[in-house]
Design a protein around this nucleic acid. Sequence first.
DNA 1: TTGATTTAGATCATTTCTGCGCTAATTGCT
DNA 2: AGCAATTAGCGCAGAAATGATCTAAATCAA
Lengths: 223, 223
Amino acid sequence: MKDSQNGPGTSLIDYPRPSVAVDTAVLTVADGSVCVLLVRRAEDHQHGRWALPGTFLRERETLADAVLRCLREKAGISGRVPRQLQVFDDPARDDRGWVLSVAHVDVVPLAALEEALASDGVRLAFVTREPELIAGLPYGHADIVAKAVAWLRAAYAEAPDPGELLAEPFTLKDLRELHETVAGSMLMRDTFRRFMEPKLQGTGQMSDGTRGRPSRLWVRDKS
Amino acid sequence: MKDSQNGPGTSLIDYPRPSVAVDTAVLTVADGSVCVLLVRRAEDHQHGRWALPGTFLRERETLADAVLRCLREKAGISGRVPRQLQVFDDPARDDRGWVLSVAHVDVVPLAALEEALASDGVRLAFVTREPELIAGLPYGHADIVAKAVAWLRAAYAEAPDPGELLAEPFTLKDLRELHETVAGSMLMRDTFRRFMEPKLQGTGQMSDGTRGRPSRLWVRDKS
DNA sequence: TTGATTTAGATCATTTCTGCGCTAATTGCT
DNA sequence: AGCAATTAGCGCAGAAATGATCTAAATCAA
């Protein structure tokens, strides 16, 4: 790859360089709905508005590291596995200059967010129940949320709780309700069971203390 | 998104910035195999080696524009619809400095490459038949090729010839042979027909001059 | 204690899908 | 002209998946 005509011995790369930012949609499930984490902007630019947590890349920092640092610094949470979604490159996207933003998604269980949510600089937004809030986010963050949710749906259609939102062990009913929340629609009980059971690892245990007949308990397949 | 503590009135963004490059895997089908376009590096760095065409981003240029410019300048071809695959951010990936590379894929029919292939600075590599050539590409380009081919396979499993490789009109047999090449395996004739027919638009015409019984001719659905 | 309610897990009939095989239509060879 | 080879398109039987039904096992309310 790389440039066209650089003089002999050119080791530094003297081309114009964009600022590179990472923006992250932290998704979780709360109250039977998919939620995204927002932070109130502490910076001068768009000060006080709710937005996705984001930061500029530091020297030689990898994108995943920048995402995790940003979540720690701006939201006070510890990220899990940031995944790239897309690079947004609209030159007019940010009026401060030429900025490329690499959108990411990360899935974090609600329990790991509770502490951070005590701060009034951090909140959750219900993705489907608060469409106007999401649509009003600055910097085209609404597109990122949409991409993130689409990614989440695709991931949950493939495997049992790939975001590790459920505490182990769990019943197939727990798992199905989570997947229904993510999918936004009812899932057929038998079809779901037939698809997921072979992808799970059974513990010998049964649920109890719950209403109705006890159910087998499962954990995500570690293999 | 964006930085943490910038002084009042800061409109320029004074953080360290990486060089940003785009690298593109131009895929096509030739000789019944999936191929990727390589160019001989004209630059000092890795001079003369085969590599994917790539370039550094110019001021305020979008990624797609950079890809199309790069294909025009380095390979002498006109790209179609560049799609982002992934950002490669390994700090040690390029020994010239801190470089982020945004990998892209574009699908171009062989006919649109023939002219460029006359040059000895441009060639095709058979993705499956020349594994050692692909594996030996510099800058981790082998990973990009792998991602590009995976993307191509996924796209061709969903829709009839999404890369628009076939000249219209075509028969279902033409289409199936193309999809078999991309998939790298035989596809069941009837299953393929049942899946693709509703996604195609029929012309009233029939193929003729060909061996065997004439077949209906189709075009990709424009709706 | 007893019956209503809830949920789990298995069985079963029905629908849907898959892949084989038959017939039709054409070219090319003798 | 006639036969072999090739390909298209459709019908059909077997396979697989689906969604409903039935029974079992527990809690909760009276």
